[in-house]
């Protein structure tokens, strides 16, 4: 793991403002930014560990623990609220038996809030991986959850 982390750091360390590109590379590869990466990044960029930790914790996107197999984001912003996202959100939490920032017991799905996916003309919207779905209703959500639980991405 250490070698993988250091290799990713070395790929990006010469860029100006390298920290975010490094964190993205780590999370893309490993699914999260492991604690053991922090001292390695700090040393490579000549920063304190606190500075690196501070950046990781500032941004919603970066995770310090692994997510479930799939991450389901539900948009909570105003446009989606105007089209029933509050109900959709409550439905998803009940269907999965978890709250935001939690992962189902089978490890299949992590539920995360998101504030706008830029899909506001087709609200309410959700995102799984890099795919956004619009005009989502509870039936569609049920079908999606069933698919994700089978390990089949929509």
């Amino acid at each position: 793991m250490t070698a993988t982390i250091q290799a990713l750091i070395d790929t990006h360390r010469s860029q100006a403002g390298a920290l975010l590109p490094i964190l993205h590379a780590l999370q893309d590869q490993l699914g999260y930014v492991p604690a053991e990466a922090i001292p390695l990044i700090a040393k490579s960029l000549n920063l304190s560990r606190a500075e690196v930790q501070g950046v990781i914790s500032f941004y919603h996107h970066f995770r310090s623990t692994p997510a479930g197999k799939h991450t389901l984001q539900i948009c909570r912003a105003e446009s989606c609220q105007a089209m029933g996202s509050r109900e959709l959100e409550a439905y998803a939490k009940a269907a999965l038996g978890i709250d935001f920032h939690q992962t189902t017991a089978d490890g299949a799905i992590s539920l995360e809030p998101v504030y706008c996916l830029g899909n506001c003309a087709c609200s309410p919207s959700i995102r799984v991986g890099d795919e956004v779905q619009g005009r989502v209703d509870t039936a569609q959500l049920d079908a999606l959850i069933a698919e994700l639980r089978q390990g089949v991405v929509a």
Binding site: A18, L20, L45, F58, H61, Y115
Partner: peptide
């Protein structure tokens, strides 16, 4: 790429973020 912080749409915050 940003990292999911709405505030980074504010120009000085964006510059800080670009600086890492």
């Amino acid at each position: 790429l940003g990292a999911g912080a709405y505030i980074c749409g504010e120009e000085t915050s964006l510059l800080e973020s670009l600086e890492g």
